[in-house]
Computed example of a mutant assay.
Amino acid sequence: MNFDQFDAFEIKLQFEPAPRPERVHIGLVQLANDHTLETDWSHLLREQAALFSTRIFKENGMTPEALDAVAASISDGAVLVGDGLPMDVMAFACTSASIVIGEDKVAKLMTQGRGDIPATNPWTAAQVAFKHLGAKRVAVLSPYPTDVNFPLRQQLIDAGFDVVALAAFGILDDNIIHKVPLQSFEEGIEILLKDNDVDVIFMSCTSLRAVEKIQYLEDKFGVPIVSSNSALFWHAMHLCGKTAVCPGYGKLLSGTVI
């Protein structure tokens, strides 16, 4: 059978394009050495959102220089997300890089060529989440070394929050952050709450495996807990006019109006 014969043999079908599924489309750019976010978000997405993601390179090492260098790859990564498919919101998944590079610059890099759509990152999202929860006094549980924690604290203060305590594991190796266990979370939170009046605890870094532990930790310590990954998902939905409904993952994601 030659091509002309095959062309006559082939049955030509017609179809009407189906509408886009009725769920929020989130475009995500994450770091190549993030070992946690996809697992965390697998518990949250359900039928309320669809995720389209790509990864970009980051040199191993939690240093301001390595974090700042990520900026050179953000726009190239963002343009690869869901090529040909409109996104409702773009999300950049690195808290510390957002602090070092700057929230406004990250947003611009994430949305180049995508029209007028919103963008978020864990650092921006966390601050909006704190305000949503009515939290003024923030305690931070951080995996970062001191030279990353220093601007984190200062930027929270500049945003109008009281940083009542900050405890850090001082991890330099990106590939270790996801290995911090629940017991260490508990020990750190106990230290943060001792003799401090705390409205919210922020577990910073998308690589911390915290989302599955949030409800347990809130029930144990009696204080709202926001992680980078819970804040990022909540804010991405919020920017699309939706309420993230993820019962069992803490007060922020409970779906209740505060």
Rank of each mutant, 00 (worst) to 15 (best):
G188P: 05
E190D: 10
I191M: 12
K194I: 02
K194N: 12
D195N: 12
N196A: 12
N196K: 14
N196S: 09
N196P: 06
D197E: 14
V198L: 02
D199W: 00
D199L: 00
F202I: 07
M203T: 12
S204I: 07
C205L: 04
C205N: 03
T206Y: 07
S207D: 15
L208F: 13
R209E: 09
A210T: 10
V211Q: 03
E212Y: 14
E212A: 15
E212F: 11
K213D: 05
I214Q: 01
I214G: 00
Y216F: 12
Y216A: 15
Y216R: 15
D219I: 08
K220E: 03
F221T: 00
F221Y: 08
F221W: 06
F221E: 02
G222R: 05
P224L: 07
P224M: 07
I225S: 04
V226L: 05
V226S: 06
V226C: 05
S227P: 08
S227C: 08
S227L: 07
S227M: 08
S228V: 13
N229Q: 10
N229V: 09
S230N: 12
A231T: 04
A231H: 05
L232P: 07
F233V: 14
F233Q: 13
W234R: 15
H235D: 15
A236P: 07
A236D: 08
H238Y: 13
H238Q: 15
L239K: 14
L239S: 08
G241P: 10
T243F: 10
K251D: 01
K251W: 03
L252D: 07
L252Q: 08
L252H: 09
